[in-house]
Design a protein around this nucleic acid. Sequence first.
DNA 1: CGTTAATGTCAGTCGTTGCTAACGTTAGCG
DNA 2: CGCTAACGTTAGCAACGACTGACATTAACG
Lengths: 119, 119
Amino acid sequence: MGLTERDASDEALRALAEPRRRAILRLVAHDELAAGEIAAAFEVSRTAISQHVTVLKNAGLLTERRDGTRRLYRARPEGLAELRTLLDEMWAGALDNARRLVEADRGLSDTDEEVGRAG
Amino acid sequence: MGLTERDASDEALRALAEPRRRAILRLVAHDELAAGEIAAAFEVSRTAISQHVTVLKNAGLLTERRDGTRRLYRARPEGLAELRTLLDEMWAGALDNARRLVEADRGLSDTDEEVGRAG
DNA sequence: CGTTAATGTCAGTCGTTGCTAACGTTAGCG
DNA sequence: CGCTAACGTTAGCAACGACTGACATTAACG
């Protein structure tokens, strides 16, 4: 079967996988900035930044607002929230696994598995 | 350039960007499975699965336990928690932005800080 | 209407990565 | 030992993605 997963969560997760895109997102999380201002914060060309911004916009992590020839961007909290929901789902599954180990530990003292260990 | 970010969060985020790796993670979130069992759940070769598991392990999202010639894997909740923390930081920034807009609507004026430049 | 400013888009290059096939490694069995 | 089973590892290839330079587009201004 096709493994070409194409939902919004996948797109947003893949967009966040890029360090440069995360930097852009942090930049526009505090203030609404124009494309030129964003590009000025990096050493790469404006073309690269424009493409990154397009990816972030398609992923629903960014909002575009036009003001004359300029285009202002800012982070979209809803997009981040969706990502956190996806992570929470996986986290719930892992927690279910951890709880199973804890229950097994109640009845058995032979196993030496460690769960929730800060390393 | 000096933008080669190499912390654990970056590695985990990039590991989760792959749909196949997310599927593996969901698989071992419910039960502890051997490498062969994981590979049997997909159409790709065992080699590909082994490499994906290595990536997930290096990202701190997986735990390896050896039993004879077999290697059992299960999800590590801490790794997911770190990712959620990273997302929460970004989310906090976006919320700060939203709160600023709300305060502006109420007529309050606040001092803004300069944006950190990369480079 | 022509010019400039701000920005997006296209084609091509190059590093990265997910994949397969072949080989190496470790643990159990006789 | 030799043999088998369950893995990981390496080399090589094809696809994807990030980047740059050149061109297209849109809006203000005289």
